[in-house]
Design a protein around this nucleic acid. Structure first.
Lengths: 327, 327
DNA sequence: TTGCGTCACGTAATCGTTTACGTATCGAGG
DNA sequence: CCTCGATACGTAAACGATTACGTGACGCAA
């Protein structure tokens, strides 16, 4: 590893001067700039981030905390985080919450030891313990959750998005729309969505019908069962996650229903999963990658404290007009 | 941020002693150990990783390089990497290759500046430029690829796995088995799988039939078209990725074929995608999470240089016996 | 010519650890 | 009693960068 002193020596200047040209701090002539840059290139010098971070007391590291590393929704957001972070010369450190805040606290403690430039919390509410663990200096931003913590946030308007999703089904003539909700543990994102659904249903005098899964594929199967049991003549299902939506289209077809002729299914989030079923899942799309990008810009001090990004209803193959009533 | 000197002062010893008990280096009495530990607890002291890394010239950071952050297969592996890394007190830095080696080189350069303990390369072959970028000190390990670089590796035996996958279809009576292969760019993993398929087919005197996608869902549709065109009476399809397998079961059903009664579909990798279709996809499973775990153990100096982990054929709903020939 | 402001550097302290080396104390063996 | 070897520390020098401060040279106005 070549050090700043080695390149200084090669050029015949002091380390301070090299540091200045590297960081663009005024105090050197054009000629020495050239020679320093050339020496850097020849020696393949790269500033030691540890030493730099020690001196400046902050590194160019960004922490990312997600419920699970392999979570599809989080992955998309992380993708945006990674590219925007890199665009700003920052690197990304990964951690997961798992169940309970214990892992998160532990992760934040080790993260703090690296003096990160900021931390992105994906689908994760912050606890006082977590705040203590990471220290009060480090800026945090929460993504895909708006309420429940006083952090700056990047998210869609879940209530409105669910309202409009429901509305789009209603406009196609559906009245018997079952809701496949997420579980209580992710209440911060689910509660507003449920409210949006109910508000839309009530607006047209339709009766809300809800069952709860845990957002994952398997959990949707029994919830669907219960839904059909409560109303065998459902014409549409609004699932609050794409995985549950995928389960709905598969399960419907297994029961001999055609999608969307006999049953429309609307998903939520627009993860890649929505394209893995047939017909492809219509969904209420969150701009996941842009959300990740926005989050790092916010951390790096740009943009308003609370960003609400636009959602979008994407009609793919799984939704259509109300089936003709048999007569 | 409390420093080591502050805890030293509080106990009435020198910083050196505190450092010794923190790192378990002999040279302190049991009594001072107790008191130091207590002071650390009271002050919430956490050693500064940057300073420590500067002094020892290596951090407890592990780099991970994947083709894409949101890649499903890579995500599973990363999940294993993260948990095992954490179990060893290491943190994980994320980077992506994208297309071309340029991003990878850039990432490895910034990674080197943090003096990482090692780097995990997922589905990525190393180039001389990449090696230079990261420096010769940093140990590397490649996951999910065995050939093509002289790195220590963790992977399954792709040739054998594909052979056995094909064999399992053959044993069910299938003879007209189409192969949905991946693209040339990932030749290091695809070539052996194709060889395994061909070897099995030839072993029973069946005729190989192959078309090429790019491992993603969408790419499988036209490839399937070509497959059916070349042999309309295929009774099974072996897809070299779960996404293509999922496309095959959906596309088959769209054409009015029942899965598995009329057509069996076998996938590859055992990513979550395999459970997102109906019937759920039978697949040749790689132990992705354990592969990630093994990789970090290998980096940290444990285990043999080249690990071949066991694959497994998982029969879910998408495969079955040959359809009766109509007569 | 003198004086002063600017430019272009160099010097040296500093960030928070680790660690080689020095040292005081103490018990035991001769 | 003296010596020797552990044991249990303390001292101070690194690690590789950044940066406040000092300084010599130069230009220019008075």
């Amino acid at each position: 590893m070549t050090t700043i002193r080695e390149v200084a020596q090669r050029v015949g200047v002091s380390a301070a001067t090299v540091s200045r040209v590297v960081n663009g701090v005024p105090g050197f002539s054009e000629l020495t700039r050239q020679r320093v840059l050339q020496a850097i290139d020849e020696l393949g010098y790269e500033p030691d981030s540890l030493a730099r971070g020690l001196k400046t007391s902050h590194s160019a590291l960004l922490g990312v905390l997600a419920p699970a590393v392999s979570d599809a929704l989080a992955s998309q957001i992380m993708s945006g985080v990674e590219s925007e972070a890199r665009a700003h010369g920052h690197a990304v450190m990964l951690g997961r919450t798992g169940s309970g805040a214990e892992l998160a606290v532990e992760y934040l403690r080790t993260l703090r030891a690296y003096r990160p430039a900021g931390v992105v919390l994906i689908s994760t509410a912050i606890t006082p313990e977590m705040r203590r663990a990471v220290g009060s200096r480090v800026p945090l931003v929460s993504v895909a959750i708006r309420k429940g913590n006083e952090l700056p946030s990047v998210a869609i308007d879940d209530e409105l998005a669910a309202y409009e999703g429901t509305m789009s089904l209603l406009r196609s003539g559906h009245r018997r729309i079952g809701l496949l909700a997420g579980d209580e543990s992710s209440v911060l994102v689910n509660a507003p969505r449920e409210r949006g659904y109910r508000r839309a249903m009530r607006a047209v005098g339709a009766k809300p019908l809800e069952e709860r899964g845990n957002s994952l594929y398997e959990s949707a199967i029994p919830a669907l069962q219960r839904l059909w049991q409560r109303d065998p003549e459902l014409t549409a299902i609004f699932a609050l996650s794409d995985e549950m939506g995928a389960a709905a289209v598969n399960e419907a077809q297994r029961r001999g229903l055609r999608v969307p002729e006999d049953l429309s299914v609307l998903g939520f989030d627009d993860t890649p999963t929505s394209r893995h079923v047939h017909p492809p899942l219509s969904t209420v799309a969150q701009p996941l990658v842009p959300m990740g990008e926005s989050a790092v810009r916010l951390l790096l001090g740009q943009g308003p404290r609370n960003q609400v990004l636009p959602h979008r209803i994407i009609a793919r193959g799984s939704t259509g007009p109300t089936p003709m009533p048999p007569h």
